[in-house]
């Protein structure tokens, strides 16, 4: 990848980065303890696993509300609008171009952090998978109040089934997601960007003057 002129743009705000890592930590804790509750095997005794899972889950639920608020007040929700434009190009890139050393067809920009594939993935996550997981988790947690909530007819087995299925989907996402962080121009580039907020992009990409910074170059 060396040889391209690189520039740094400030892509991820402080809250966004905090939210990313905070949610990552919560999800990993939830996966570890959740699969213990599901299987009976794991790091903790059942009681501890349940306690950690419940408190972490409730924390996630509250924190997620802040994320939704942030997304709408900042207009960042627009980053999640799905598009088919260049979708095929992106798919082709990851399936083929990446092995040929080609450039990414949709480089990151401040007003388009996500490529079309990411948009679709993250929209499914943030608007569907994670809320469903939180909702079923909350229901599971409130099992003893179902009758007073007027949903006494619901079966725990059904809620647990959806909750487990979503957990598997999230775990699969996590694996692919972590792997995808290595597909930047350097293996650690994307992770570094999510820590510092500054993403290195190719300089010939048009960036606003205020967000531009000369990169200390050469890989």
């Amino acid at each position: 990848m060396s040889g391209f002129r690189m520039k740094l743009i400030y892509l991820y705000s402080r809250y966004e980065r905090f939210w990313h890592w905070f949610q990552a930590a919560l999800i990993i804790i939830l996966l570890v303890t959740g699969f213990q509750v599901n299987s009976g095997y794991g790091l903790f005794d059942f009681h501890t696993a349940v306690d950690i899972h419940n408190y972490t889950g409730l924390t996630w639920l509250i924190a997620f509300a802040f994320f939704v608020f942030w997304m709408f007040t900042t207009g960042e929700w627009k980053q999640y609008i799905p598009t088919t434009k260049k979708m095929l190009a992106v798919i082709r890139y990851y399936a083929y171009g990446i092995f040929r050393g080609e450039a990414h067809p949709v480089p990151k920009r401040l007003d388009a952090k996500h490529n079309p594939l990411q948009r679709l993935t993250y929209l499914s996550l943030a608007a569907f998978l994670l809320p469903v997981q939180m909702a079923t988790g909350f229901l599971y947690w409130g099992y003893n109040s179902w009758a007073s909530w007027g949903i006494g007819g619901l079966a725990l087995e059904f809620v647990a089934l959806i909750h487990t299925a979503c957990a598997f989907a999230i775990l699969s996402f996590l694996i692919v997601h972590i792997y995808m962080t290595t597909t930047g121009h350097k293996i650690s580039a994307h992770v570094k960007a999510m820590i510092t907020g500054w993403e290195e992009v190719e300089a010939d990409e048009k960036v606003e003057a205020w967000e531009e910074r000369e990169a200390a170059q050469k890989a």
Partner: peptide
């Protein structure tokens, strides 16, 4: 249904296949 004792065999089988598939997929990629 008792948490920790009961589980859905289908979901767990398909789930672990998906997880394993993701691992194998990214490894080959």
């Amino acid at each position: 249904y008792m948490p920790g004792r009961n589980y859905n065999k289908w979901i767990n089988t398909i789930g672990w296949i998906a997880v394993l598939g993701s691992l194998v997929g990214v490894t080959f990629h």
